[in-house]
């Protein structure tokens, strides 16, 4: 029998159709997540992190379409569901929080109204039960004096508190999966630490899966079990946190790690940047998407897509160097 995956994305291709042409935002994305796992997705701006995660919720912009592969979540074949069916799953089995908490909050309703609405929509709780649950949720996310907060409006709260409220709303019906799209990027470091601490704590207590989208390798290092490294719409490497940091198998992953400062390093070390500019998805390179910026680029990299090579059950990368190394060691 196959394992019961919480998320099982196989060879997903997703394009946006724009006046300028077809933007191939996702190109053969494969992700498998067990229940209760924390997956980090890292990569540069425009690499497809959000598009991947939103497609699990059936939230793709009108001009976008899954043009290949399949997306399965919690037993649902997402790419086959209608919007009406999708709405029953959203907020109930999977919730999302965004970088800017105001994306999810309505400025003209009180906090109590908005969390209450989320509860009424997805559970059969009524009246006082709803209020009790609101208070419970606010305490769960570490907001003190929850009863007083219920009557307040979003603008009366600080950025960190608003993000806590959004998390409370997302947890209203105990989803199996929480998608967090750069949830702390807009927050100050000390507030970011509070929110990350909270998410880790909730994950342990509620056992939900989390997809953490971020450009900050520090955030994934402390939070995630597994990491998907995306580049130009492809997952170039996927593995356990330690695989990615201590045994990276793709030149982009290596470059990413080398380009950030080592914090506890007394010796000064010059940063090693990745030269060049990110890919134009209207005209993606024929071979490895990273080839134009790769220091180790070979001829084959320019015109053929690298094959996926597996290093362990849950660690793979797509880079011709690995194929070359394997061939050399076989000789």
């Amino acid at each position: 029998m196959s394992e019961p995956w919480l998320v099982n994305i196989q060879h997903e291709k997703l394009s946006f159709f724009t006046p300028a042409g077809e933007v191939k935002a996702l190109n053969d994305v494969t992700i498998q997540m067990k229940p209760g796992e924390v997956l980090g997705i890292v990569g540069e701006s425009g690499s497809g992190k959000s598009v991947t995660a939103y497609s699990i919720m059936g939230l793709t912009a009108d001009n976008g379409r899954i043009v290949g592969g399949s997306v399965e979540f919690n037993g649902h074949q997402i790419d086959k569901l209608s919007e009406v069916e999708m709405r029953k799953i959203r907020g109930k089995e999977v919730s999302i929080i965004f970088q800017d908490p105001m994306t999810s909050l309505n400025p003209v309703y009180t906090i109590g109204n908005q969390i209450g609405e989320a509860i009424r929509l997805h559970t059969d709780k009524k009246g006082d039960e709803v209020k009790q649950r609101c208070i419970e949720l606010l305490s769960l996310v570490g907001i003190n004096e929850p009863e007083k907060r219920l009557k307040q409006y979003p603008h009366e709260l600080s950025g960190g508190m608003r993000q806590r409220v959004v998390i409370a709303m997302a947890l209203a019906c105990e989803p199996k999966l929480l998608i967090a799209d750069e949830p702390t990027t807009a927050l100050d470091v000390t507030i970011q630490a509070q929110i990350l601490e909270l998410m880790q704590d909730l994950q342990k207590r509620l056992g939900m899966g989390i997809i953490m989208i971020t450009h900050d390798l520090g955030v994934v290092a402390s939070m995630c079990d597994r990491i998907a490294v995306m580049y130009a719409g492809e997952i170039v490497e996927y593995g356990e946190v330690d695989d990615i940091f201590y045994n990276p198998k793709h030149e982009y992953t290596r470059g990413l790690i080398a380009s950030i400062p080592k914090f506890y390093e007394q010796e000064y070390e010059r940063l090693v940047p990745i030269e060049g500019q990110p890919v134009d998805l209207l005209n993606p390179p024929a071979g490895c998407p990273f080839a134009p910026r790769c220091k180790a680029c070979m001829k084959v990299c320019l015109n053929q897509k690298p094959e996926r090579m597996d290093f362990s059950e849950r660690h793979y990368a797509r880079c011709w160097l690995n194929v070359k190394a394997a061939m050399e060691s076989n000789q």
């Binding site: 509070q194 601490e197 290092a221």
Partner: peptide
């Protein structure tokens, strides 16, 4: 509070989480 991009160090270190804003 600085997120350390090194899982082993990150697991060992303890955040001093400040209360409030």
């Amino acid at each position: 509070a600085v997120p350390i991009a090194d899982p082993k160090t990150a697991r060992k270190s303890k955040r001093i989480v400040l209360e409030g804003d």
